[in-house]
Simulated scan of single mutants.
Amino acid sequence: MPKTRKQEILRFRVNDDLYNAVKGVAAQKGVTLADVCRELLEDAIARQQGEQSQDYLLALVKRAVKEELKPVEERLAKISAKNAITSGTSMFMNMQVIQDRGYDAQDVYTKARKKAVALLKQSEDDE
């Protein structure tokens, strides 16, 4: 004797608009109301599971990218810190030399800074 699969019965209420819409789809397809409801539920479940899978994959990708970029981020931070120290040392030494030569170091610094800011604001086309 072949085994038959037990099917569960779901019972729930819907408003008139939803009922008429499902009934219209069933009539259009030439299938029963139950077939349309079953198909819609299966599609909704498949879509929900797909979205959950996408969320899981997205989380995995984000974590992998973060782990791969962490050493690069740390290296760039170290390089940036070294550049800041070098720049500060260079500026101090230059100011000391300018002052030792008898110039107003603050005035020279202010003028140089203004020129540097103007240079940075220039577009590449102006160069």
Results as ranks from 00 to 15, higher is better:
residue 63 R to P: 03
residue 28 Q to S: 15
residue 117 V to P: 02
residue 104 D to N: 15
residue 108 V to C: 05
residue 96 Q to S: 08
residue 31 V to C: 14
residue 63 R to W: 01
residue 101 R to G: 09
residue 76 L to M: 13
residue 81 A to W: 04
residue 55 D to P: 00
residue 56 Y to S: 11
residue 97 V to K: 15
residue 126 D to L: 08
residue 99 Q to V: 02
residue 79 I to Q: 14
residue 92 F to V: 04
residue 108 V to A: 13
residue 65 V to T: 12
residue 56 Y to D: 15
residue 124 E to L: 11
residue 70 K to L: 09
residue 111 K to R: 14
residue 120 L to Q: 08
residue 54 Q to I: 03
residue 53 S to F: 04
residue 67 E to L: 04
residue 14 V to C: 14
residue 35 D to Q: 12
residue 73 E to L: 09
residue 60 L to M: 12
residue 58 L to G: 15
residue 24 G to N: 11
residue 102 G to Y: 04
residue 36 V to R: 07
residue 60 L to Q: 13
residue 64 A to D: 15
residue 77 A to F: 07
residue 102 G to H: 04
residue 126 D to Y: 12
residue 122 Q to E: 15
residue 11 R to I: 10
residue 125 D to E: 15
residue 59 A to G: 11
residue 110 T to G: 02
residue 113 R to T: 10
residue 66 K to I: 00
residue 57 L to K: 04
residue 37 C to G: 05
residue 38 R to V: 11
residue 15 N to H: 00
residue 62 K to C: 05
residue 3 K to D: 10
residue 87 S to T: 06
residue 24 G to Y: 01
residue 36 V to G: 07
residue 7 Q to P: 02
residue 75 R to C: 04
residue 48 Q to T: 13
residue 70 K to E: 15
residue 64 A to C: 01
residue 117 V to D: 11
residue 77 A to T: 09
residue 22 V to C: 06
residue 4 T to N: 10
residue 34 A to L: 12
residue 42 E to L: 14
residue 56 Y to P: 06
residue 68 E to Y: 06
residue 38 R to E: 13
residue 107 D to R: 15
residue 80 S to M: 05
residue 23 K to N: 15
residue 99 Q to T: 02
residue 117 V to R: 03
residue 17 D to C: 03
residue 59 A to Y: 00
residue 55 D to C: 06
residue 35 D to W: 00
residue 36 V to D: 09
residue 112 A to R: 01
residue 113 R to N: 06
residue 28 Q to V: 05
residue 78 K to W: 03
residue 53 S to H: 05
residue 36 V to M: 06
residue 120 L to H: 03
residue 101 R to A: 14
residue 51 E to R: 12
residue 107 D to M: 12
residue 76 L to V: 06
residue 32 T to F: 03
residue 57 L to P: 07
residue 14 V to A: 11
residue 117 V to L: 14
residue 122 Q to C: 09
residue 68 E to S: 15
residue 104 D to M: 03
residue 91 M to I: 10
residue 110 T to H: 07
residue 35 D to P: 02
residue 116 A to V: 05
residue 17 D to G: 10
residue 31 V to M: 07
residue 1 M to D: 11
residue 68 E to R: 14
residue 20 N to I: 02
residue 20 N to K: 06
residue 116 A to S: 06
residue 21 A to Q: 12
residue 55 D to T: 04
residue 121 K to R: 05
residue 58 L to P: 01
residue 55 D to F: 03
residue 73 E to C: 06
residue 83 N to W: 04
residue 47 R to G: 08
residue 90 S to C: 03
residue 36 V to Y: 07
residue 90 S to L: 11
residue 73 E to S: 13
residue 119 L to T: 05
residue 111 K to H: 10
residue 100 D to N: 12
residue 70 K to N: 07
residue 20 N to V: 03
residue 111 K to I: 08
residue 105 A to R: 11
residue 73 E to W: 00
residue 118 A to C: 00
residue 120 L to P: 06
residue 97 V to M: 10
residue 75 R to K: 14
residue 2 P to A: 11
residue 115 K to N: 14
residue 116 A to I: 12
residue 106 Q to I: 08
residue 18 L to K: 01
residue 84 A to F: 04
residue 1 M to A: 13
